[in-house]
């Protein structure tokens, strides 16, 4: 059966085309989620940096993952 000399690349079967569209939609969703995550990460870094700076100013320091009060050594 003759189907023509040029078969266009978009001539996919219905199911394959549907899958392609679904993949594109999913990729866009992931890009959106990553952008939200990036914004949240920046926001979080800033807030915790302010809180940590205040703890340092109030004589606390981070020791093995825990904030502890410095017992006067800093001023020596």
């Amino acid at each position: 059966m003759y189907v023509g000399k040029d078969i266009p690349s978009y001539n996919l079967s219905g199911k394959a085309q549907e899958q392609k569209l679904q993949n594109q939609k999913q990729a866009a969703e992931i890009v959106n989620e990553v952008a939200i995550d990036q914004a949240l990460e920046e926001n979080h870094t800033l807030i915790t940096a302010i809180a940590e700076a205040l703890l340092l100013l109030n004589g606390y320091h981070l020791h093995k993952g825990l904030w502890r009060k410095i017992n006067g050594k800093r001023n020596q």
Partner: peptide, 27 residues
């Protein structure tokens, strides 16, 4: 949204720089 959030405000950037310097046991 990406463009808005990628712009780190200058005070925050400076704070992060200063904070890195004092992030040690006895600043």
């Amino acid at each position: 949204m990406e463009n808005e959030t990628n712009k780190q405000p200058p005070p925050a950037t400076k704070l992060m720089e200063i904070f890195k310097k004092v992030d040690k046991e006895y600043p």
